[in-house]
Simulated scan of single mutants.
Amino acid sequence: MPGSTDEPTEPTPGKPSAADRAARVAAMRRTERARARRRRALVVAIPTVVVLGAAATVTAVLVNRPEPPSLDAVTTYEYAGGDHVSETVTYAENPPVGGQHDPVWLNCGVYDAPVRNENAVHSMEHGAVWITYRPDLPAEQVEELESAVAGETYTVLSPYPDLPSPVVLSAWNNQLAVESAADPRIDAFLAKFVQGAQTPEPGALCSNGVGTPTG
């Protein structure tokens, strides 16, 4: 436009975009699924043309894939699904990772205020990962968490008072506490647990419930 001084916004140097993080999570998810299927090195066959004799043979080669960050620090629990109650629940974990919960789930998305535990736990029963952060977490770290969940339909992001660490990631029966939104294990946790094998009710909705996310 003539006379306009607007210029395209450049991404922050050194900071991955939402698309970059989504691609990284997708790659980790593919690796995780391959590992779950085989639990050993993936071997594929490639054709090798043998010049002498004009014959083709198949040579097995080991495919080296980059290992995702370790999730050994994840704490696991043993709550059964399907325990619906209407009253307020006192949870042993902070934030909760399973157990009794409201009959109505929380709509997945980004929230700028704390959400009700009982509804969020139901969302985790459907395969959602709930990322909670201290209300005083710096704004740039909150933005990084928002970038991490961009494009993920089965995630909940919300502030949570009195967390034991700045950021806590929870999936049904699994929880990881981290000190920063830049921790690479966040993407690895999402790749493993968003609608992961731990889900008591796979295929259930994370929409048409309660709550109005801002993003």
Rank of each mutant, 00 (worst) to 15 (best):
P66S: 08
L106A: 06
A73G: 07
E201V: 15
V115R: 01
T57S: 13
N119A: 09
V121I: 07
G151D: 03
V44I: 12
A113L: 07
N107R: 03
R33W: 04
V85E: 11
S158K: 02
P200H: 02
Q195N: 14
V61T: 12
D187W: 05
V149E: 05
G82K: 04
Q195D: 10
Q198M: 15
V178I: 09
V89I: 06
A60Q: 15
E125Y: 00
Y91N: 03
S123Q: 08
R38Y: 14
E67W: 11
L145V: 03
R35C: 05
V110E: 04
A56S: 09
Y91T: 05
K192M: 14
W105C: 01
S17Q: 11
T199M: 03
A182F: 15
V115Q: 02
A73W: 07
Q195L: 09
L205N: 15
A73N: 09
P161E: 12
W105L: 07
G127P: 02
A45M: 09
L169F: 04
W105Y: 08
L157Q: 00
P200L: 01
N174Q: 10
V25H: 02
L62K: 11
G3P: 12
S170H: 08
V97T: 05
P96C: 01
E87M: 12
P164R: 06
L169I: 02
H126R: 04
D83C: 11
L71M: 13
G151Y: 05
V58L: 13
T90F: 10
Y79V: 01
L71G: 04
H84S: 10
S17I: 03
N173C: 01
P8I: 05
A27S: 08
D20L: 07
W130C: 01
T31E: 15
H122V: 01
N107L: 00
W172T: 00
P200N: 02
P103M: 12
A19R: 08
G109R: 00
A80E: 07
E93I: 06
P8C: 03
L137M: 05
A26K: 02
N208G: 14
I131N: 06
R24L: 14
A188E: 06
E143T: 10
M28V: 02
Q195G: 14
A34I: 11
A181R: 01
D6P: 10
D187I: 07
G99C: 01
E201C: 12
P213E: 06
L157D: 00
V43D: 15
R29D: 05
